[in-house]
Simulated assay, not measured.
Amino acid sequence: MSYKNILLVDDDIDDAEIFKMAVESIDSKIKIVIEDNALKSLNKLKAASKLPEIIFLDYYMPYLDGSEFLKLIREVKGLKKIPVVLYSGQSGAKIKEVIKKFKDVQFLEKKANFRDIVDSLKEIINS
């Protein structure tokens, strides 16, 4: 499957812009929506008529962290099947707990090198 409709939830503007450029370098036809607030994003998802095919979620967010977002999204019938990838610069104990708790969640560490970001995203987007 190749994802063509992506939601990125990340409050770091620079990281979000790099992510967007990396996705566009993989396939310029991919539609990417960027939200900088997980709580607002969740509310928009609940009301959306067209849902993303995959969500990339920064773990460390204000108002609602990655674990809280996952718990709430998995409680909503129309949203629980959307694949989620935790996208974080850290892979510490909290992240590992979340991945263990939500077994269907993938993890992608934010990379410093643009080519590494593209390669990692390509594996997920084209899987």
Results as ranks from 00 to 15, higher is better:
14 D>G: 07
15 D>V: 05
16 A>D: 02
17 E>G: 11
18 I>P: 06
18 I>M: 09
18 I>R: 03
19 F>S: 05
19 F>C: 02
22 A>T: 01
23 V>S: 00
23 V>A: 04
24 E>N: 13
25 S>F: 11
25 S>N: 14
26 I>R: 06
26 I>M: 07
26 I>N: 02
26 I>Y: 07
27 D>K: 12
28 S>Q: 15
28 S>G: 12
29 K>P: 15
30 I>K: 00
31 K>L: 08
31 K>Y: 14
33 V>N: 12
35 E>K: 10
36 D>H: 11
38 A>R: 04
39 L>C: 07
41 S>I: 01
42 L>T: 05
42 L>Y: 03
42 L>R: 04
43 N>S: 14
44 K>E: 12
44 K>L: 13
44 K>N: 12
45 L>H: 00
45 L>W: 05
46 K>Y: 09
46 K>V: 08
47 A>V: 11
47 A>G: 12
48 A>W: 04
48 A>H: 08
48 A>F: 09
50 K>F: 12
50 K>P: 10
51 L>A: 06
51 L>Q: 06
51 L>T: 08
52 P>E: 05
53 E>V: 03
53 E>R: 01
54 I>T: 00
54 I>F: 01
55 I>L: 02
55 I>K: 00
55 I>E: 01
57 L>I: 06
59 Y>C: 00
59 Y>I: 08
60 Y>K: 13
60 Y>D: 15
60 Y>C: 13
60 Y>F: 14
61 M>D: 07
62 P>C: 06
62 P>A: 08
62 P>K: 09
64 L>V: 02
64 L>F: 01
65 D>G: 01
66 G>S: 06
67 S>H: 14
68 E>K: 10
68 E>N: 10
69 F>T: 04
69 F>R: 03
69 F>D: 01
70 L>S: 02
70 L>C: 01
71 K>E: 15
71 K>A: 10
72 L>K: 07
72 L>W: 09
72 L>G: 06
74 R>I: 02
75 E>K: 10
75 E>H: 09
75 E>S: 10
76 V>C: 05
77 K>L: 13
77 K>W: 13
78 G>A: 13
78 G>P: 15
78 G>E: 15
79 L>D: 08
79 L>I: 08
80 K>H: 11
80 K>D: 13
82 I>H: 04
84 V>Y: 05
84 V>I: 06
84 V>D: 08
84 V>Q: 05
84 V>S: 03
85 V>H: 00
85 V>C: 04
86 L>Y: 01
87 Y>P: 02
87 Y>H: 03
88 S>T: 00
88 S>V: 00
89 G>V: 05
89 G>R: 01
89 G>T: 06
90 Q>C: 04
92 G>R: 07
92 G>C: 03
93 A>D: 12
93 A>T: 15
94 K>Q: 11
94 K>E: 15
94 K>N: 15
95 I>W: 07
95 I>G: 09
95 I>S: 04
95 I>K: 09
96 K>A: 14
96 K>R: 15
97 E>A: 11
97 E>T: 14
98 V>A: 12
98 V>N: 07
99 I>K: 05
99 I>Q: 11
99 I>S: 13
99 I>A: 10
99 I>C: 13
99 I>H: 08
100 K>R: 12
